[in-house]
């Protein structure tokens, strides 16, 4: 095989990479546990909508879904409660109905897994502000967890379900350290009114793309897109993939005409 493009779980992707033939070029696009840094000055009201969309879009089954939101402690609880209310307001149900905003997870087993992870997080100290329950056997209610343990699965692994975790911080440097602490680095966000804070966060957050004042799941198909470190290899996006799928040929022409 000359080229392998794989989109799916990190476990399968790295396994396949270990097995490909010598010379096979590989592009891997895995998941993440996308972090958001909400600075002390951020206007909370205006960021609830984008973050609810970025975390609950396609029931969180997106590799750049908003998962871990670090909010300055002065606003964290108010923010989390408003985000929970936004999650409660979403219409969950049949994806073929035009009013539906959050559909099912892809398999009933995934609903069970997400339910177990949320229960584990609550038993390890998280406060569940919305959701936290199955809806039938195929859907999971949009869920906001407040301050889960950094050791809980919802803090360390990709949830791939409609669950957003909110972590209060007082030390900005420590929040950035937590944001970068996992092996997954894909897309990240910062919300602030100060350009210098925005630039600083863009510089410090480990991600291929950092959104300023937008959610982490923003994508258009012509921009470079890809995971760093455990989240993948190579750069996706239409033009970038096409470049990867070609290689240079050099022609050297010898002629007295060029003397």
């Amino acid at each position: 095989m000359n080229f392998l493009t794989f989109i799916g779980s990190a476990k399968v992707g790295w396994y396949l990479k270990s097995k490909v033939a010598p010379g096979t070029r590989v592009a891997l696009e895995h998941g993440g546990a996308a972090p958001v840094l909400v600075e002390e000055d951020a206007a909370i009201e205006s960021i609830i909508g984008p973050l609810a969309k970025g975390g609950f879009y396609h029931a969180g089954q997106v590799c750049v879904s908003v998962q871990r939101v670090f909010v300055h402690a002065s606003q964290a609880e108010a923010f989390a409660e408003k985000l929970a209310a936004a999650g409660e307001a979403l219409v969950v149900g049949d994806p073929l109905e035009k009013a539906t905003e959050v559909g099912p997870l892809i398999l009933p087993d995934e609903v069970e897994r997400v339910a177990q992870w949320v229960e584990e997080a609550i038993s390890e100290g998280a406060r569940c502000l919305s959701g936290g329950k199955k809806i039938g056997n195929t859907c999971y209610a949009p869920t906001v967890l407040y301050n889960p343990s950094p050791e809980s699965k919802v803090s360390t692994e990709e949830i791939f379900g409609p669950v957003i975790c909110v972590y209060p911080y007082t030390d900005r440097a420590e929040a950035i350290r937590q944001a970068n602490a996992l092996p997954y680095h894909f897309q990240a966000s910062v919300f602030t009114q100060h350009v210098d804070k925005a630039f600083s966060a863009v510089r410090q957050l480990n991600a291929l793309a950092v959104m300023v004042n937008d959610h982490t799941a923003f994508r258009v198909d012509w921009m470079p897109f890809g995971g760093r470190d455990a989240s993948g290899e190579g750069i996706g996006g239409i033009a970038y993939s096409m470049h990867e799928m070609t290689r240079p040929k050099l022609m050297v022409i010898k002629s007295p005409a060029f003397e």
């Binding site: 470049h243 290689r247 240079p248 040929k249 050099l250 022609m251 022409i253 002629s255 003397e259």
Partner: peptide, 9 residues
């Protein structure tokens, strides 16, 4: 006495 260029395959 040479000219060279690349193209993509």
């Amino acid at each position: 006495g040479r000219m060279a260029f690349t193209f993509r395959e």
